[in-house]
Design a protein around this nucleic acid. Sequence first.
DNA 1: AACCAGGACGTGA
DNA 2: TCACGTCATGGT
Length: 224
Amino acid sequence: MNKIYKIYNLLLEKYGTQGWWPFLGIGYHKGDYKYPKNSDQIFEVALGSILTQNTTFLSVVKSLDNLNDIGCITSKTIKSMEIDKLKECIKPSGYFNQKADYILNFIEFYDSLNGKIPTREELLKVKGIGEETADSILLYGYNQSQFKIDAYTKRLLLELGLIEQKAKYKDMKVLMEDSLKEMITDEEDLRIVYQECHSLIVEHGKQYYSKKPYGIGCFLKSKF
DNA sequence: AACCAGGACGTGA
DNA sequence: TCACGTCATGGT
């Protein structure tokens, strides 16, 4: 058993399954990995993935609620609304000018897919979608085995001495994916482990890797 | 009051 | 390629 897989199991043992992605009106869905259940929910993941850039998901929920309250949470309805109205709705999530632009860029791309699953490369061409957002959309929206790296993951791996400070996104992604692939052969199981592992790191990170100095009280430190 | 949140992009070295 | 500035609201 490699270190990453061990970390995953320790986190799972401590926090239990997370059931990401949290959907509007449903929340988390522990034990049911058959989400998203329709194209509107796939779009909701993408929308949330863009809105959550450098902000808390709580503020994203506020923005999504604002859109939902006026019946504008689908790609079609957002496309047809006034851009100023869109900006007003997503204001709680910050960077509303850029994010409104990013969302419209994504909708144009999303519509061109006609239901097809996008590749990572295609997503990265959309202005406003970087590596983390692309992986978020693929992992939680399309159930693809693409590990999502975030700030908490880097802090944790750094604190445990598993990467260097200069490590890039791809370095961490390869480490996480290769380590977990080594233990899981079934593709469906792998995607679920990617989802759970990332969300577990976020849960753990919220508690021990939010404020400096990072890692105070982290139970994983004594095990590596 | 300072710092950070489930980042991405543009710029100049 | 890399370091840095910018984007913006909201909670602690």
